[in-house]
Amino acid sequence: MSVEISVNLRKKIDEIKKKFPRDKSPILPLLHAFQDEFGYISVEIEEEVAKIVGVSPVYVREVSTFYSMFNNKPVGKYHIQVCGNISCWLRGYDEIVEYIKKKLGIEIGETTPDGKFTLSRVECLGMCDQAPVMQINGDFYGNLTPEKIDEILDNLE
């Protein structure tokens, strides 16, 4: 199976190659661009990136698995990443994550059956002034309470 590259993605790939012409530097920006489009990094995407950069697919695999932000399997439409590090934990991570688990009926690392939500625990997000914090598809939400979580999650289509 080969990867379908949209016009938009093709444009991004060309920009990345131009902006980072040296060595293997395009790899990380390319992986970001592909993940933005497809939601995760499949074997086919690794092969595609390898072709663009001129390295072996296994090299791309090694890089993509080293970095925790690259998903190696599909995730839900909304990827909820709750910070479980010290500052968030001090401000109630345990209760927050329990609440989300119950609300969605899934454990950490799982996706809801309708494919809408994936729940992950992540390390410090650099938002400790607003602890407890979560990030959903790039957007940060801080000072979480059960009410606030209801409001945020219920408003996601």
Binding site: F20, K24, S25, P26, I27, L28, Y67, S68
Partner: peptide
Amino acid sequence: YRGAGAYICGEETALLESIEG
């Protein structure tokens, strides 16, 4: 240059490796 979730890339030489792909 955007990292991708690796604390160690804040260490200066790991950061260089990361930019080098």
